[in-house]
Write a protein that binds this DNA or RNA. Structure first.
Lengths: 343, 343
DNA sequence: ATTAGCACTCCTTGGTGCAGAGTGCTAAAC
DNA sequence: GTTTAGCACTCTGCACCAAGGAGTGCTAAT
């Protein structure tokens, strides 16, 4: 079906998409012939456009408006037409300038990355913190806040820190707490959180530990801490989408903000991106999230070693500068990967 | 000047404000007499309203609209007219249900608190994390990520955790790192971060430490970590203000969102609230932030012991249900104070 | 001091009429 | 057979106007 498109149709489709990306106005046959040196008359273009509409690549808001690319058109554009630009030297510098790890915690680095993405793309930046369940434990620490209230700090290999306050049902002496810490570090270091969960259960049933009150206690406490935390999401540059003319009406805007405020849906969507390595693009309805019509998502995974550990990207209108944004997301993901490498 | 207001005028002003809070429409003389059993004719009310306008309590958008309370009117209302309600039993339950500390880190607790404030008030909730500079250090930990990259974890008395990644200019052995940790904990525990800063400088000039490479190194590293972090702000429920009719136009909305996205201004404003203990109310222009016209801020400080350590509150239109929101903010601040007490 | 009455002002809503942009079709040109 | 010029038609956006409604301010009567 896509093969039906001859070279000329492709060129015209591309011209329409690129024009629409710039102007955000339905584009008519005249406009195309004026802005592109095709040596074709408007009438011819009209015929081609009519065909393209038939095939589902274009839609007309109403009879006498120009035409607008459909999600299908963008998909085709991204897959076949688009010549991905390289990140320019100045963009690279800008990106690196805004992502510095030294003297910060991982959280701020990721937030800054998200801000950078939004700033540079003029849309929204999104970064999902490394999912902790897959993280490898480097160290566990207990800090006593009061007799029974204990602060547990988990440090992952990547430098991500997670902490929780838990309540013990009895007082624990500082000495005991120390012994527990050592015991648990020996037992759990180097395992992923997922592995740790089952390891704890295993160990709890172990004869030796069952009768050692202290160890039993330690296991019980650590079990409280490794509950599944939902990974943090840094969504920055919300205001940018207020400048997008497609979303200028207050109702639509409200809908979008509501969808992103309650982050569940976004989490699900981004988790889907985790599965596929590298660049991932959802165009409009492809995301299967109803509020995401006219919204596209460009993501890439970042990794330590061979494992993808998180996702970052840009959220904008389907009418987005793909040629510019895709390489930026790609480059940023590589950069973050490198930053998080512990070496 | 305020004494000029006789009982009747006050009643009418109160009626206008409360009507306007509910309807968001300029209120006319007819409406007042209909909704309130004053036994006064519209004409009389008109005369009073005219006086009130003269005195700066009311303004008319245009000749033939009703009248709208000014910031001055709200201020008078809040100070003199308002009978603050108690938090209802069910509100109390709701608030407590949504603020649980067990099994979470302080950050999530504060975020949840902010969400709760926005949910219950229908406006935006804001919570400023305890400012770290005033916090008392409970413990410092170093975790080696790689030879030179070190994760520093600071735990405050309140259970707040701050961590940073720093880069050392030479490799440090695990043993040395341990010794450094012990040394620093002995030196710095129980001091506030502010005190720690000067203590480090002091110690660096000390004869003993100057010639002990390890200690000198430790001081140098710790100095990197106690740089002034800007306190985190949890601003939740942004969408709620999209439902406020005053802000329904896209330009105004953009302005507001932009003002809150760049959090500096908000930080300054909230810091001002830190200075005064307890409830603090900024009405519209009182905040001296230009984008905050028609926006009010109700805050209260929360504390451990005698010290205010943070601020929380609600941001909404000046046309806000003060009678309901003020006690909610007050109650929440007390609750958070109690939660953070380490005992 | 209060109120009824009335003229006046201003916003809102709905209708009308054009100008502009774009299409689809047909017939002519290449 | 493809391309193009020409033309009728459609739809939006905008300006303009008129009528209706809400509310005020003033004056004169109670």
């Amino acid at each position: 079906m896509l093969d039906d498109l001859n070279e000329r149709s492709k060129q015209i489709l591309e011209a329409i998409i690129e024009d629409y990306i710039i102007t955000a106005e339905p584009v008519g046959s005249r406009t195309i012939t004026r802005r592109h040196p095709f040596a074709l008359s408007p009438a011819t273009v009209r015929n081609v456009m009519s065909d393209l509409e038939e095939m589902g690549f274009l839609a007309s808001p109403h009879t006498s408006a120009g035409r607008v690319p459909t999600d299908k058109a963008y998909r085709f554009y991204v897959d076949s037409l688009l010549a991905v630009r390289q990140v320019s030297r100045s963009e690279r510098d800008e990106i690196r300038r805004r992502c510095r790890i030294n003297g910060h915690d991982i959280g701020s680095v990721l937030r800054d990355t998200s801000k950078m993405l939004s700033y540079i793309s003029h849309y929204m930046g999104v970064v999902v913190a490394p999912r902790f369940a897959a993280a490898v434990l480097r160290q566990i620490e207990f800090v006593q806040l009061s007799g029974r209230r204990i602060l547990v700090i988990l440090v992952a290999q990547s430098g991500t820190v997670q902490n929780k306050i838990i309540e013990s049902d009895e007082d624990i002496s500082a000495d005991d707490l120390n012994r527990m810490t050592n015991y648990l570090n020996g037992l759990l270091q180097g395992l992923t959180i997922a592995q740790i969960k089952s390891r704890i259960v295993e160990e709890m049933e172990n004869e030796k530990t069952r009768y050692d009150r202290l160890m039993a206690k330690a296991l019980e406490l650590s079990q409280q801490t490794v509950g599944d935390a939902d990974s943090e999401i840094f969504l920055e540059g919300r205001v940018n989408i207020m400048d997008v003319p497609e979303f200028a009406d207050i109702g639509r805007m409200k809908e979008i903000f509501r969808a992103f405020e309650e982050k569940n849906q976004l989490v699900n969507l981004l988790n889907r991106c985790m599965d596929a390595d590298g660049i991932n693009i959802f165009i409009g309805s492809e995301s299967r999230v109803s509020q995401m019509s006219d919204i596209s998502l460009i993501t890439s995974t970042y990794r330590t070693g061979r494992n993808s550990i998180g996702v970052l990207g840009v959220i904008g209108p389907t009418r987005m500068g793909y040629a510019k944004v895709i390489p930026i997301v790609d480059y940023t993901a590589r950069l973050v990967s490198r930053l998080l490498e512990s070496e």
